[in-house]
Design a protein around this nucleic acid. Structure first.
Lengths: 161, 161
DNA sequence: GTGAAGTGGTCAAGCGGGTTGACTATACCT
DNA sequence: AGGTATAGTCAACCCGCTTGACCACTTCAC
C-alpha cells in the first residue's frame, strides 16, 4: 500500500493537471504492456477507430471521420493503415455504390479484446493504489461531470492536445 | 445539482478514458474562458513554459526543453513566440556567454496569475458537480497514483498524444 | 596555459498527422 | 431528366515537432 498524500497539499486549480498526468501515466502503462506483448504501437486514434467500427458494422469512412472529429481524408488515411496491418477490411457497401463498408477483421476484433483487457489491467493497478471504493467513487464523479458538461451531446474523444 | 450516475454503469477499464474526456472538457472550458477574455489562444505547452519560467529564474532554453521533454529547437521556437507576444524576455546569461537567461515579463506574470484563476474556476465548476469532499478525495487519489507511478522521478507533463 | 571534448543556441531539412481544395462517381430530389 | 448533395480520392499545404549540422563558448585533462 502506498503512502497517503496529505489532503492539505491541494492547491486550487491543480486537479485538471492531475487528471492529465494520471491519464498520461496510464497510457504509458498501457503502451508498455502492448510493447511487452510485441504488438504494433497503435496510436490512440486507432483505438477509437477500432472501438467505433466494432460497435457500428457497415460504418463508412465519412461516419468514422464524423465520429472522430477529423476530416474524411484523415480518416481514410488511418483506415488505410489499419487495412495494411490486417485489422480492417474495406468492402463494397451493401446499398450505396459510392461508399465502402468498413469492418473489423478477426485480427481487429482480437485487438479490441486485448485492449479491453489491458485497460482493465491499468485500471486495476489504479484501484490497488487508491482502493476499490475510491475508484468507484472517482468513476462515478467523472461520469457525473462529463454528463453535466455534454449532457446528451456527443462526447469529443480525443484529448485535444 | 446534477443527476447522480449509477455506480453500476462502471465497466472495467473505462476510467482511463473518463480521465481523458474529463480533462478534455476542462481544457475546453479553460480555453473558452480565455477566449471570452480576448487572450491569445496559447497552447498547453506555453502554459507549462510559463509555469517553469515563473519557478526557475535564469533558466535557459535547454533547461526548458529538458523540463518539457522536447528538443531545444522546439523549445527555442516556443520561446520566440512568447517573446513576440511580450510574455518572455531573453537576456544575456549572467555567467555563461553562450546562454540566454529566460525571464517572464510583467505581462507574463499576469498571464500566469490569470491562468491560475481560470484553472481554479474550472476546478470549482467540477467541485459544484461532484461536491467538495469528493473533489478533495479525487485530488488525493490522483496524487497517490502519480506518486506511486513516478515516486521522486520527474513527472512527464504533456499528455503524450 | 592549451588543446580536446562538451554544451547553449541557431539554421535547415524532413516527417507525421492533420487541414483545405478540387475532382469523380454515385445517389437523391423534384 | 436535370440539379444538388454526398462518398471517396488525389494533391498541396500547415504546424509542431524531429534529426543533423554547425558555431560560439565553456570545461576538463594534462
Amino acid at each position: 500500500m502506498p503512502s497517503n498524500p496529505d489532503p492539505a497539499d491541494h492547491r486550487p486549480g491543480q486537479v485538471p493537471l492531475l487528471l492529465a498526468i494520471a491519464y498520461r501515466a496510464m497510457t504509458d502503462h498501457f503502451h508498455s504492456r502492448l510493447a511487452e506483448l510485441g504488438r504494433e504501437p497503435l496510436r490512440p486514434a486507432h483505438g477509437y477507430t477500432f472501438r467505433y467500427l466494432a460497435d457500428h458494422p457497415d460504418a463508412t469512412t465519412v461516419d468514422l471521420a464524423a465520429h472522430l472529429g477529423i476530416t474524411k481524408q484523415a480518416a481514410s488515411k488511418a483506415v488505410a493503415e489499419l487495412q495494411d496491418w490486417g485489422y480492417v477490411q474495406r468492402r463494397p457497401h451493401p446499398v450505396d455504390k459510392r461508399a465502402q463498408s468498413l469492418t473489423l477483421t478477426k485480427r481487429g476484433h482480437e485487438y479490441v479484446h486485448l485492449a479491453d483487457q489491458l485497460w482493465a489491467e491499468v485500471e486495476q493497478r489504479f484501484a490497488e493504489v487508491i482502493g476499490p471504493d475510491r475508484l468507484a467513487a472517482l468513476d462515478q464523479d467523472l461520469r457525473a461531470y462529463i454528463d453535466y458538461v455534454y449532457g446528451d451531446q456527443p462526447v469529443p474523444f480525443r484529448p485535444v492536445w
